[in-house]
Simulated scan of single mutants.
Amino acid sequence: MSELGRFQDAFVTALAGRTAAPITAWLPDDADQPPGLAVYRNTIAKGCVDALAANFPTVASLVGDDWFRAAAALFAAEHPPASAALAAYGEAFPDWLSRFPPADDLPYLPAMAQMDRLWTTALFAPEAEPLAAEAFALAPDVLAAARPRLHPSLAFAGFDSGLPGLWLAAREPEPGEMVLADDPQGVLIVRPHDTVRSRLLDRAGFAFLTAARDGASLGAAITAAAETDPAADLAALFAALIADGVFSGLDLGDPT
């Protein structure tokens, strides 16, 4: 490794460890704790907090700026960024919140963070052209045997209560009264073109997407949806998913 490379590694260690010891070999004899290190640390810390506020806006709106920034600073100290790009920073934040004692009175907060994270993941996912309805105009047996490829931006999750509805309401420009429903709900997030879309996902839709994600054929995925909710309108469900742009490919199988 070059001298510059060794210094850069030592400098990063000094910033993370809040001590100048790793870089003493490059410092003048009278500079045990150069004040410039604090400037760099503060700049990095502020960047991390700002990135978390941008990536978890629902959490920030629910707890308020002071609470969020204090929590984000603690998280950033424990989880420094792995790269200079902070656009998707905070992968571990939802799980961290579930163990953060001041959030014990806010049991919905980790789920809010999880959905914020899914939204950010969808935003930065690779591009792909979604399939139009015409792509599914196949003979019934061929269509049933086909295996769908889900759009790379698609994210979905299921919850035991109405947390997705609460999350969607909190993300409105002017949130009204937010009520946590008792019934299980799912959320679907996808970015088929330039805009991330989010909506509630019912049990049948969640079962269908789970089966498709696991490699099932369209016929098997539809069967999973029907078994989960026998009253579901399967034609409407499938049409809605196509309109959402959740499919990016279709691998035709052998109908026999």
Rank of each mutant, 00 (worst) to 15 (best):
P34Y: 10
E3A: 15
L252H: 14
L109R: 04
A225S: 12
L143Q: 06
W26C: 09
G176Y: 13
S98K: 07
S153K: 08
E174T: 14
S198W: 00
A211C: 10
G158K: 03
D50V: 06
A240Y: 02
S98C: 05
D95E: 14
A170G: 15
F11N: 08
P94F: 04
V196F: 06
L218P: 05
D65A: 14
F11C: 09
R149W: 03
S161L: 01
A232L: 05
E172P: 05
V190E: 10
A85G: 03
L200D: 09
L138P: 05
G219A: 01
A236K: 06
A88F: 00
P148V: 11
L168I: 15
A239Y: 01
A71R: 02
T19L: 03
A225N: 11
P28D: 15
E127S: 13
P110E: 04
A53R: 08
A135D: 08
T256E: 14
T43I: 09
L150S: 12
A82L: 11
A25Q: 13
F93A: 01
S161W: 03
V39I: 15
A170H: 07
L241K: 08
G162W: 06
Q33G: 08
D254Y: 02
S161D: 15
D183F: 01
G90T: 06
T256H: 12
A103I: 08
L4Q: 15
D251Q: 15
D65M: 01
A16N: 11
K46W: 05
R213M: 06
E177P: 13
G205V: 07
S161K: 02
A144Y: 00
D160A: 15
A240D: 15
L166F: 11
P102I: 07
P175V: 13
L209M: 11
D9L: 13
E129C: 03
F124Q: 03
R171I: 03
L241R: 10
P81I: 03
L250S: 12
L97Q: 05
R69V: 01
H193I: 02
G158W: 12
L241G: 09
S83L: 00
G162C: 07
T195M: 07
L234E: 04
L74V: 06
E78V: 00
I222L: 15
V12W: 06
H193V: 08
G249T: 09
L4Y: 14
T58F: 01
A53N: 03
E127K: 11
S217C: 03
A139P: 00
L143N: 04
A204R: 04
P192R: 03
L15H: 04
D254P: 00
A204V: 02
A70K: 05
L168V: 11
G90N: 05
E134S: 14
F11H: 13
L241T: 06
D183R: 14
D160F: 00
A145Y: 00
S198F: 01
S161H: 13
D104C: 12
